[in-house]
């Protein structure tokens, strides 16, 4: 396996259980993920899809599910004709209690060479994670910016 392309870390003042819910609940994800809702039953092998405005933008399969510690799913950006032809990449979330907060590590790896998905998602994750931290700590997500895809 090649080395991960991206590793993102954020510390959120919450519990692992609340954070797990925030990452996996359809209605809750839609509130902070710039309008994207995630749907899955989060068992290994189950399909996962991200919808935005009634259209599926990303699809995948649950690869690992160990609530509230580790979640991993494959990722294909299906909203773009070229990107949907690429082999799936992989997103992994690690949730670790840390001094009254939770350290959330997001690793996105397994991109194809010359992947078009890679530069596309690299600007998206910091936005999503900042918004997730904001909604869990203050009750408010960051301002919704409809210009972004995911």
């Amino acid at each position: 396996m090649s080395k991960p392309e991206f590793v993102y870390v954020t510390f959120i003042k919450t519990t692992p259980e609340t954070l797990w819910h925030a990452l996996t609940d359809r209605a809750f994800t839609e509130r902070y993920w710039y309008g994207c809702s995630l749907t899955s039953d989060w068992t290994v092998g189950a399909p996962m899809r991200m919808d935005k405005g009634g259209r599926t933008v990303n699809e995948g399969v649950v690869l690992e599910s160990d609530p509230p510690r580790k979640l991993s799913y494959s990722w294909v950006s299906v909203y773009d004709e070229e990107m949907r032809q690429e082999p799936p990449s992989r997103v992994t979330y690690l949730l670790e209690p840390s001094h009254g907060a939770v350290k959330l590590t997001v690793i996105h790896d397994g991109f194809a060479d010359d992947s078009k998905t890679l530069p596309d998602i690299s600007t998206g994750w910091p936005m999503v994670l900042s918004s997730l931290k904001s909604i869990l700590e203050t009750g408010q997500p960051l301002i919704f910016d409809s210009a972004r895809a995911a």
């Binding site: 991206f6 993102y8 994670l129 900042s130």
Partner: peptide, 10 residues
Amino acid sequence: LHYLNPVPIH
């Protein structure tokens, strides 16, 4: 491996 974590800058 060391990674630039842009989340705090964001």
